[in-house]
C-alpha cells in the first residue's frame, strides 16, 4: 500500500464576553486533508477493457480536502 498521510488544520475564533449576556460562542473553521492527498481506501485489480490479458491496479480514495465551519455556544 502507498504511504498514508494527511494534514488537518483548524482555527477557532472565540467571541468576547459581553456584559449581560449569559452565553458565549465560538466559530471553528477546519480543513481536513489540507494538501488534498488521495490516500487509498482500497486497491483493486481490473482487466484492461481492450486487452483482457493486461491487469491494472486502481486505487479508490474517499476524499481529498473537506472544509467545514462550525459554530459552538455554551450557556
Amino acid at each position: 500500500m502507498p504511504d498514508n498521510h494527511r494534514l488537518d488544520l483548524a482555527l477557532t475564533l472565540k467571541g468576547k464576553k459581553k456584559p449581560g449576556r449569559n452565553w458565549e460562542g465560538e466559530w471553528n473553521f477546519s480543513l481536513y486533508n489540507a494538501y488534498g492527498r488521495k490516500n487509498p481506501w482500497y486497491i483493486s485489480f481490473k482487466q484492461d477493457d481492450d486487452n483482457p490479458k493486461v491487469m491494472k491496479a486502481e486505487k479508490t480514495y474517499l476524499f481529498t480536502f473537506v472544509p467545514s465551519i462550525t459554530y459552538n455556544f455554551k450557556f
Partner: peptide, 17 residues
C-alpha cells in the same frame, strides 16, 4: 456546488503497485 464537487468528484485512479 461545493457539496456536489466533494461527493461526486472522481475517486478512483490507476496506480503502480
Amino acid at each position: 456546488l461545493l457539496m456536489f464537487t466533494i461527493i461526486f468528484s472522481s475517486c478512483t485512479e490507476e496506480i503502480n503497485v
